[in-house]
């Protein structure tokens, strides 16, 4: 089935983005860069997973329900990400710079 193949590809791509997000979280040098990794890679990973599963849904309503999760997750990570960055800046966490003097 072509649909199954597309689903599988989307699911695998989603897992790859989640993995990249985790690697970024583990390797990036400060809170701001780690936020970049999570806010972008993980959300894209979730979007791919949801799209892959929506293709497998029995009805349009179920597919819509799955896809409705994505904007909610985006709102959550935009808002939480902003709060964390704001908090870090208030705490005086300076952004990491390459080749520090």
């Amino acid at each position: 089935m072509l649909l199954d193949l597309l689903s599988a590809l989307l699911l695998l791509a989603g897992a790859a983005f989640f993995f990249a997000g985790t690697v970024g979280l583990l390797r990036f040098p400060d809170i701001y860069t780690r936020l970049h990794a999570l806010a972008k890679a993980d959300n894209l990973g979730l979007g791919c997973v949801l799209a892959g599963l929506a293709l497998q849904a029995d009805s349009l309503a179920v597919a819509l329900k799955l896809l409705a999760i994505w904007p909610l997750a985006l709102i959550a990570s935009a808002a939480v990400g902003y709060s964390i960055a704001r908090r870090a800046e208030r705490l005086g966490v300076a952004p990491w710079q390459e080749r520090q003097p």
Partner: peptide, 26 residues
């Protein structure tokens, strides 16, 4: 090392946690 880093856990459940749940549903 900063409290802001620990707040990242809140982000993780919103994306990875939700992803795990929908995958388990299928």
């Amino acid at each position: 090392p900063t409290p802001a880093d620990r707040m990242l856990a809140a982000l993780l459940f919103g994306s990875t946690g939700v992803g795990i749940l929908v995958l388990l549903a299928f």
